[in-house]
Design a protein around this nucleic acid. Structure first.
Lengths: 245, 245
DNA sequence: ACAAAAGTGTTATCAGTACACCCATGC
DNA sequence: GCATGGGTGTACTGATAACACTTTTGT
């Protein structure tokens, strides 16, 4: 039996996945489809974030973890609660009202929004019961509720946060090449970075560790692989209080 | 008549005020006091943040604005929603349970926490109906609910944010001296800053504008006054994407 | 004249930026 | 042998950090 739900509080999850092949930062979305009873008219046909009500006996973090696990099977991914959305009219578009009538949750629901960072390759999109699909964050489909707003705010937060914290590595495999890291930054920030300068900068960090390994199975010069050491990073206590406003 | 409340959602406000005289970053707190019926036993005697339920027809931002206004009379202050707190046990300390029985709100309330930045001198503490009082953020009294946690997380957010955004000026009068800005940074971050380097750095910013005025009424050499120009700051489009992780 | 805080300059070091070609590998 | 992406060095510029004394004012 399902635990008791809090009917007016939900958690919505912006699942960011980096696709190392297409070098694209993607968002995992769920199809929302509803036809009229006689099936002649399509009432709702768009995408939404994955989310669910908070249960009475769980923390908000636990809700987010549960929601991610149900969609992807994954646990222990990087997760951040970044904002609550509670405008009275946030679920009040005509299509949303039709949808909610069909589902059964409150029109005045406040949602606590999280984002996750992972690799698209870790998610088996076809395996999920829901119709989930990856979309580039720069090319989103039509979205229900206020989910476009939520995604864009998550993306802004991610952009700022990746400049000051080593969360970029959550989007990459444990072993990565320098150029792959550069690809992620370029894709997230939408900028071009000079490869020589970037290399030097990254290799000089003590918490970027060169491995005795190279890429395998690539049809070109295989790149040197590195890993990120969270231990060393934490020990460096990276707060240097540089005022740069 | 009071508008309809959402019984399980509240907004709590961490009101930060900088005291330019004591050079202290303070938090505005409200006394919570309850004696037993025969008045012999003190059941609750501590402090809490100011906060209130969200009304059915208002946004979360509006709730925060309303809560601040009711306590201080102030509007148009810098405000930031920084985190939601919704652990099932967050209001479950013995004293909190006694208190909630006396008030009448849900034991499982999720709160959306905001912080405000203003000047202690702008608040008339004695004028408020509630017993409000300023406490240095580094020397807080006993706090009810999970409000200590909320304050500390707000403070962490403020520390990080003041490094990259010019929010420091929200804690200062419109006209300020360079040394006062330094005082604020030192107080917030708990560090010492070299005055010569800091001066040069600040004065070189185009959005720090020297006024034709000096301090008045000080019993020493009066300092040159400056102001912060948000217009110029915004035009500079201060995103330079410096990766410093 | 004294106390108190305001204000001032130089040097060394480090980090960031701009820039173009050779190299190693798989096919 | 060739296409592909991997990998390399130098010079310039600007920012930061360390450091101690003089000046101005009110009392």
């Amino acid at each position: 039996m399902e635990p008791e739900k809090i009917l007016n509080i939900s958690v919505d999850c912006v699942v960011f996945g980096f696709d190392i092949n297409t070098k694209s930062l993607n968002v995992l979305l769920i199809k929302r489809f509803l036809a009229s009873e006689n099936k002649e008219e399509i009432l709702v046909d768009d995408y939404v974030l994955t989310g669910y009500h908070v249960y009475k006996e769980e923390t908000l973090d636990e809700t987010a973890t549960r929601v991610l696990k149900e969609l992807t099977g994954l646990t222990n991914q990087y997760k951040k609660q970044f904002k609550a959305f509670g405008n009275p009219d946030r679920l009040m578009n005509p299509k949303d009202i039709i949808w909610i009538k069909n589902e059964a949750f409150h029109l005045r629901t406040t949602t606590i929004a999280y984002y996750f960072l992972l690799k698209t390759e870790d998610v088996d999109v076809n395996n999920s019961k829901k119709q989930a699909k990856w979309f580039p964050v720069t090319n989103l489909p039509e979205l229900g509720f206020d989910h476009k707003k939520i995604i864009l705010e998550a993306y802004e937060d991610l952009k700022i946060k990746c400049l000051s914290e080593p969360i970029i590595f959550k989007l990459l495999p444990d072993k990565f090449s320098i150029n792959e890291v550069q690809d992620v930054y370029q894709s997230i920030l939408g900028i071009e970075i000079d490869n020589r300068n970037f290399r030097r900068k990254l290799i000089n960090k003590k918490y970027i560790i060169a491995l005795d390994e190279k890429q395998v199975g690539v049809s070109k010069k295989p790149a040197q692989l590195y890993m990120f050491s969270k231990d060393i990073y934490d020990k460096m206590f990276s707060k240097n209080y540089l005022i740069s406003m």
